[in-house]
């Protein structure tokens, strides 16, 4: 899949699900859909900065939908992104207590909100809190977990790259880091409740 070509929905989903070429898939999403998503925000009381913030969140929610197998390509990427974008922007307007915009938009569009997107938004809130705890881990832990779970490197590759004696040492370290992170989550009542709540929606 060359960088200059336009990917199909299937190719984008495969790239995200397979965790290969994720960055290229995200680039494809931006090139293909940023304009239409931005246009929605601009036409509904938002400015370019609002659009940038909302679209960034839209992309993250979409990636999470794919990651959690809630989006399998039944609808087009375009319509799903549009729905997420609209949902996030409506929530933003509601938070701003922009009564006029909220009333106008909600009265017309509230019934069109997709339940899966609401679940994902709740999950994203939980992720954000876990990320703040993740930042409290040591640098080695953060790097190890990132390389394994996001970059999809094998323990052998990580051991070689990060200077662990062998992959078993790296594996043990990863377990230790995960336990530390989970202990922090369990020690945070608000986060723990939020996660349990989000999981209550789960599969």
């Amino acid at each position: 899949m060359g960088k200059s070509t336009v990917w199909t929905d299937k190719e984008i989903l495969e790239a995200i699900s397979g965790s290969n070429q994720i960055n290229e898939a995200i680039r494809q999403l931006y090139e293909g859909y940023y304009g239409v998503l931005e246009n929605y925000i601009l036409q509904n009381s938002g400015n370019e900065a609002d659009a940038a913030d909302t679209i960034q969140e839209t992309m993250l929610v979409f990636l999470n939908l794919v990651e959690t197998n809630r989006f399998r390509g039944d609808s087009s990427i375009n319509s799903v992104l549009y729905g997420i974008n609209r949902n996030i922007w409506l929530t933003t307007l509601r938070k701003r207590k922009s009564t006029l915009n909220r009333d106008q938009l909600y009265s017309k569009q509230q019934e069109r909100e997709e339940p899966d997107i609401s679940k994902t938004l709740e999950e994203v809130e939980g992720y954000q809190l876990i990320m703040s705890l993740f930042e409290k881990l040591g640098k080695k832990c953060r790097q190890l977990l990132h390389l394994f779970y996001y970059e999809n490197l094998s323990m052998k590759e990580i051991a070689a790259q990060e200077g662990y004696t062998n992959d078993q040492i790296a594996r043990n370290t990863k377990l230790k880091c995960m336990k530390e992170l989970m202990n922090q989550i369990e020690g945070n009542k608000h986060l723990n409740d939020l996660v349990k709540n989000a999981l209550g929606y789960g599969k």
Partner: peptide
């Protein structure tokens, strides 16, 4: 959920 959060980051 925690692993997903790491990926999300």
């Amino acid at each position: 959920f925690t692993i997903r959060a790491i990926k999300f980051k």
